[in-house]
């Protein structure tokens, strides 16, 4: 199981800025170990961000997203105290969901 995500949701005027840091190796499947063996691909393929259960961001990722990826989005409408949920699924079927509240 991967480490928890860091989710920060802050209001700036009427726009909520959501920043997510996911803990994931994001292996491309093209890198070789020192013994010359390919490191198998292991990367987040999809993630969804929801505010109070309503999807706001629905994303697909490829292998070229950086290790421990950071994403930033802006959403109009949320209020302080609203619940922000982020869920990802990787190519090996691992998944993780974390929750935070809008500050």
């Amino acid at each position: 199981m991967a480490d928890p995500m860091k989710i920060r949701a802050t209001m700036a005027g009427d726009v909520c800025e959501i920043k997510v840091l996911m803990s994931h190796p994001m292996e491309t499947g093209q890198r070789k170990e020192s013994d010359g063996k390919l490191v198998p691909a292991h990367f987040i393929q999809t993630f969804v961000i929801a505010v109070n259960g309503k999807t706001v961001i629905d994303a697909n990722c490829g292998v070229s997203v950086s290790r421990n990826p950071v994403f930033g989005f802006k959403v109009k409408g949320p209020k302080s105290g609203d619940k922000v949920t982020v869920s990802w699924v990787d190519n090996l079927g691992d998944k993780r969901t974390d929750e935070s509240t809008v500050a």
């Binding site: 999807t55 706001v56 490829g62 070229s64 997203v65 930033g72 959403v75 109009k76």
Partner: peptide, 23 residues
């Protein structure tokens, strides 16, 4: 080697803006 890095869909008030770190 595989040019597409990320694709984001916006809904329910999300502004069409995204930040991502790529390799």
């Amino acid at each position: 080697p595989m040019p597409l890095s990320a694709n984001f869909q916006f809904a329910n008030g999300a502004l069409p803006e995204a930040r991502v770190n790529v390799k």
